[in-house]
Design a protein around this nucleic acid. Structure first.
Lengths: 225, 225
DNA sequence: TAGATTGTTAATCGATTAACAATC
DNA sequence: TAGATTGTTAATCGATTAACAATC
């Protein structure tokens, strides 16, 4: 019905393509094929073609996709509305890592300010972004029309911060704390779940141990990738 | 065929259940039902039941699951082989955040040492774990039979570190650098992809803008959760 | 023209949900 | 016994893959 009918998993692969294309040797080849992208990333080529078809019409049989145009179309699709106005809550090690990571601007995220309760941190700036007291969080979000809130606070504080953000009109919350958050329906909560990734790793190790030589379980599983 | 036939998505939800159960008020209720867990986490109750059925037989009609036993079965399934022997490569902000995060031990991960090229960092310890020069990485991994390597290095260095790890017998790599890594088939590479999560957030914002009032696109999408 | 590549339609695969029988 | 809850079998839904027509 909507032209927006794009799958969640496709959406998650789009920045992977974008990143791959951007890192390609500068202007060496004017075109690239889905086959080449698939090989470079270890994905299926039909999948790549279908994913790209969701965001661009610039593919031409025999020649492939013009590189510059493809990058442009991906960027335009991923953040049509310009960079997202974002705040970060919690300036511990992780928060500081996120705050000083330069790469977010390549993916349409603009962290405008950070917030913390620790008076020793408040008043400092990181790459030009101020660290403010959490008490000012709601006012700041309203005034600056913040769209995304990143939570890098301890688990116990996360729900409270989330409420403050959503109460001040923030539309999406990116949560690095290990708790499931409850939020109004209109708000998207994206859980960055280290423990879930870890479960996949542990399970892989377990399988290796349990398959000493007999059934080639690992080979079969790995081959599917 | 194998009794291991557990789906990837189920596997990723197991630590979420575990975390939820552990945070429950200490010993107040001896049992818990799938219905209660589902409500607490905002998931479907059939899904919870099916997921739990993969790791435990301790559910009893009418009473639910004995809490302690359920936690035990989850832990046993998730890291049957004890804590995973792990090293961290790259002690920047992110690396330091991961290194000092105490929560990993709750999920079966034991970071034994960290590695960096910066001589100013080498020689220090963080919570008893030494920071060693990267040159010692392969020898350390072999000697200590390291199973998992966490990469928190710049994108340009990631593939090289990955090769060093896999060459020294490491069986799984958890990569926080924004590059797709190539590794031998036996090695599981788990990509922690910030840009992919970000794409979901941005897309949500875009949909909000494009749905001023007419089609209740957001409501429909949100209701499905 | 022939060959390579795109994009689409149909088939398969995997995961979620619904319906229901089993059981404490 | 009646009611609540588990666990399983069948139906649905969504995503990937295979086959193929269109086209430069």
């Amino acid at each position: 019905m909507q032209p927006d009918r794009i799958s969640k998993l496709t959406l998650q692969r789009l920045p992977v393509y974008l990143n791959y294309l951007r890192r390609l040797p500068e202007g060496l080849y004017p075109h690239i094929s889905a086959t080449a992208i698939a090989a470079g990333l270890g994905l299926g080529e039909v999948q790549v073609r279908k994913d790209l078809a969701a965001v661009t019409r610039c593919g031409k049989p025999k020649t492939g996709y013009p590189l510059g145009r493809l990058i442009q179309d991906l960027e335009r699709f991923l953040w049509a509305g310009g960079c997202s106005r974002t705040v970060l809550v919690g300036v511990g090690n992780l928060g500081l890592a996120l705050l000083s990571y330069g790469g977010f601007s390549d993916y349409g995220l603009r962290i405008m300010a950070a917030f913390d309760t620790n008076p020793a941190l408040v008043g400092a700036t990181v790459d030009g972004r101020p660290i403010l007291p959490v008490s000012q969080l709601p006012a700041f979000c309203r005034r600056e029309q913040v769209q995304i809130g990143i939570l890098a606070v301890p688990a116990a504080a996360a729900q409270g911060c989330c409420d403050a953000l959503t109460g001040a009109g923030v539309q999406a919350v990116w949560n690095f704390a290990p708790v499931r958050l409850r939020a109004p329906e209109r708000v998207l909560v994206q859980q960055e779940d280290m423990a879930s990734s870890l479960a996949l790793l542990s399970h892989h190790l377990k399988n290796l141990c349990e398959t000493p030589d007999g059934v080639p379980d690992t080979a079969a599983t790995a081959a599917k990738r």
